[in-house]
Amino acid sequence: MAGLDPAVKLRRSFVYRTLQSLGADFQPWRDASVAMTLGGSVESETAAGRKLGLVDLSPLPRTGFKGTGTVEWLTEQGLRIGADSNMAYRQEDGSLAARLAPTEIFLIDSLAGEGRLVDRLNAAWSWGTEKPRRLVGYPTPRADSHCWFMLTGEHTPQMFTKICGIDLRPHKFQQGQIAQTSVARNGTIVIRDYLGALPAYHLLTDSASADYMWMCLTDAMQEFAGRAIGWSALKRLAGSS
């Protein structure tokens, strides 16, 4: 292990101890620290990520809004949100607005993790002063309710068949599509991302079950020689594909 001790930061990944045991190199990022590599070089982890890689993105920004008026308000804030639920809509800064329901949005930041849109929206929301109050939805603490993992690589769809009953193969599960389903018996939101031809999926699941989910995923990945990789490798995969 090298770099920062993640426990010096107030915000800590839900699986930081596991990452430490894998030799994580933590670097500070906003109010948390992120595992840049996990015991390997960026090159080797990038290569692994092309086959089957698991990344912890839990320290990166995300937020959510739900309730009456949510989509209208977010649209006023400049978000582009399509009409279909269970689809994630790419924003200008690369973040994804996942429409879980007609009035529910889960916003995950781009893989750059700068959080500008997330921060702006969190700061912009208020109860307001109008009487009667104008309904603009309500913020939801998605950075804490859900851990955020990402799976990449050509073996990912096959690995999923061991833990999820939904057909997530790329030709059946389109880019941007969302499955709100059970993964390893845990309620999970699966989002297919836009990493070119490389299958890539966001997994957002109960933060209290993060240790459990990480264990299930790495166990299922063994068959395909999959491994955990760091954020650096993921960014390289995203940039090169």
């Binding site: 101890r17 018996r185 209290a208 993060a210 240790d211 459990y212 299930c216 166990d219």
Partner: peptide, 14 residues
């Protein structure tokens, strides 16, 4: 099969 027995840990578990 593989035993999927979800378990939840609080933030202070460790």
């Amino acid at each position: 099969g593989r035993v999927f027995e979800p378990e939840r840990h609080t933030a202070m578990h460790h």
